[in-house]
Amino acid sequence: MYNKILLPIDLNHKQSWSKALPTALNFCQTYNASLHVIMVLPNFGMPMVGGFFPKEFAEKAKKTLTDNLREFVKENVPKEIKVQRIVADGKPYEAILKMAKKIDVDLIIMASHKRKRLEDYLLGTNALRVVQQSKRSVMIVR
């Protein structure tokens, strides 16, 4: 039923993966699916943001994120599950949707978190935007 599962996470926020990861692993084991774990680095190239950081900052941040993601997968994903680690940049929901299309996933499994900021009420969460705009099935884990 599912061949490729996309799991967006943020290693700085355990709630982004603490419940979603076990669910994704269960689906991978049940359907012999591959797991594609994605982390999104904010786009530092934007003029408004990029001016505050040295030019090499984005490259260093991406390398650090890649290393951290590799360690996370090594510690949390069983060896028998085929896994791909992805570090993307940009707005989280846009990067998730773009990658889901690019690798042609069957299912996106992601966590939803409690709204804490006014921005979340006005603009909606990344999970909400993924659900609204995705052409693939999305499972939200609370």
Rank of each mutant, 00 (worst) to 15 (best):
D10Q: 01
N26R: 07
L123D: 10
T23V: 07
I103M: 02
R115S: 08
L21H: 07
L122Q: 10
A127K: 08
N12S: 15
D106I: 06
N26G: 08
P54L: 02
F72V: 11
V138C: 03
K101C: 00
K4M: 06
M39K: 13
V141P: 12
M46I: 15
Q132K: 13
K91E: 11
D106Y: 10
K116I: 02
L7T: 05
N126C: 05
Q133L: 10
D10K: 01
P78V: 03
R136Y: 09
M139N: 14
L65Y: 13
L123S: 11
V131C: 11
S112R: 07
K114T: 11
H36Q: 14
L122M: 15
N26A: 07
V138L: 05
E119I: 13
D104C: 09
R129F: 04
L25W: 04
P8N: 02
K62E: 14
L123F: 15
M99F: 04
I96Q: 03
V40D: 04
L118C: 05
D120S: 11
P22Y: 14
D104Q: 13
S18R: 09
W17R: 01
K98A: 00
E59T: 00
V77F: 10
I96H: 05
S112T: 12
D104S: 14
I109F: 13
H113G: 10
G50S: 04
F53M: 03
L41Q: 14
G50Q: 05
N32G: 01
M99C: 05
L122Y: 14
G124V: 06
C28N: 13
G45I: 05
M110A: 00
M39D: 09
K55T: 08
S16P: 10
H36A: 12
A111N: 07
K14E: 15
P78I: 03
L122N: 10
N126E: 07
P47K: 08
D104F: 09
Y121C: 06
K55I: 09
C28P: 15
R117W: 07
K116L: 05
D67W: 04
H13C: 11
V77S: 09
P78D: 04
L25G: 03
N12D: 15
R142Y: 05
V83Y: 10
H113I: 12
V141H: 10
G90I: 01
K74H: 15
Q84M: 07
V40K: 04
D89N: 10
K98E: 01
V141F: 11
I140R: 10
R142L: 05
V130P: 11
P42W: 01
L25A: 02
E59N: 00
Q15E: 15
T23C: 03
F53E: 02
Y31L: 09
N68I: 11
D89E: 12
E119C: 07
K60V: 14
E71I: 13
N26C: 08
L128W: 06
K19V: 08
H36D: 12
V87C: 01
I108R: 08
L118E: 08
D120Y: 05
Y93W: 13
I38C: 10
D120T: 05
D10R: 00
K55N: 08
L69N: 00
V141W: 13
